[in-house]
Write a protein that binds this DNA or RNA. Structure first.
Lengths: 183, 183
DNA sequence: CCCGAGTGAGACGTTTGTGTCTCACTCGGG
DNA sequence: CCCGAGTGAGACACAAACGTCTCACTCGGG
């Protein structure tokens, strides 16, 4: 009887990932609950998005944990990261564009933590001599988000195959499009 | 006295690039005209966005023309393309996310033309042996859009320097993050 | 069995942006 | 100089979504 708050959140995430402008009513129906009940658990769309942000941050940090970014080759760590992040890619894309809208307000501290961890990976790769040093970790982090978002949308719209998601992103980011001598 | 329709469009593009949810009133004020006048020239927000789409497509196709994608190295052509597209990057990012929302309706044929031209460049690079063949032109095209959008936003928010825009995108896309033997 | 916490449906008022209309004004060309 | 096309300001009605509230209902634990 009692609503499973986490289940509602995940349903909302799945819906908003597909249709970012879905109304509270649509979210409620998708979750199989009444609009009033949705409001009882999340005081308004704002609060819902914030809760989704918390969820996304939590899952992302979990993914980064599992990826063990500080172990072994930076390249392998990057591949592990992309693999672990894949299930959250759609939600990540939604939250990134959502954050893009609310320019003024300060962002959730979780994003800073995540940015820092990803940045550190790129820096580690540079210090190990694995990664080139003419591209800043900050840009590489942004680029990673951009590629993940592009990949998630491309998969969603059927422009690329879901099974290629990890490979496409990780290998493009690692090696670029140019044919390289090492391979 | 008479409103310069193209000037209004460009002002709207600049504003919506920064704040995608700007109202018609904000657009009108930004363009220095009354809301009624804005409606006289564009029958509603929908029409305005469509006109912006036309503008963006026109400018993008112009940029692709100037980049001479079918001449010389595919790598150099790619660099030229990124350079020419830079001024339209913000508008492109806005339109891409805007298109992401209206899932159902069929998209403007201009996008298909642009996609095709970019795709052909990647394919040409592959056929010349310059580009790797394990990443599809379709994905590379999507990835390019993603990187341009990420770059435009990062510059807008001051996370990376505007002067690095072209280099960051083109070189990351070409060579990836991994240190390569050739360089 | 029963009672109450939690829920669904829906009504209601509010807010926000939209689109239309009117009216006075102001240029600028004839 | 004068007239009218084009404009700005504002009023107005409308639609969509929001947030709140009420009320009947239904589980499930005590």
């Amino acid at each position: 009887m009692t609503v499973d708050r986490d289940q509602v959140l995940r349903t909302a995430a799945a819906l908003l990932t597909r249709k970012a402008t879905a109304t509270m009513d649509e979210v409620a129906r998708a979750a199989g609950i009444g609009r009033a009940t949705l409001h009882r658990h999340f005081a308004g769309r704002e609060a819902l998005v914030r809760a989704l942000e918390e969820l996304g941050i939590r899952e992302l940090e979990g993914a980064l944990d599992k990826a063990r970014l500080d172990e072994g080759d930076a390249s392998d760590a990057l591949r592990r990261m992309v693999a672990e992040v894949e299930p959250v890619a759609g939600l990540l894309a939604f939250l990134v564009t959502e954050n893009q809208l609310f320019e003024g307000e300060q962002m959730n501290a979780g994003w800073a933590r995540i940015d820092a961890r990803v940045s550190v990976l790129f820096k580690r790769g540079q210090e190990r001599g694995e990664f080139r040093i003419d591209l800043t970790p900050a840009w590489l982090t942004e680029a990673l988000y951009g590629l993940i978002g592009a990949g998630a949308w491309a998969v969603q719209d059927g422009r690329v195959a879901a099974k290629d998601f990890q490979y496409m992103i990780a290998e493009l980011l690692l090696g670029g499009v140019r044919r390289s001598v090492e391979k």
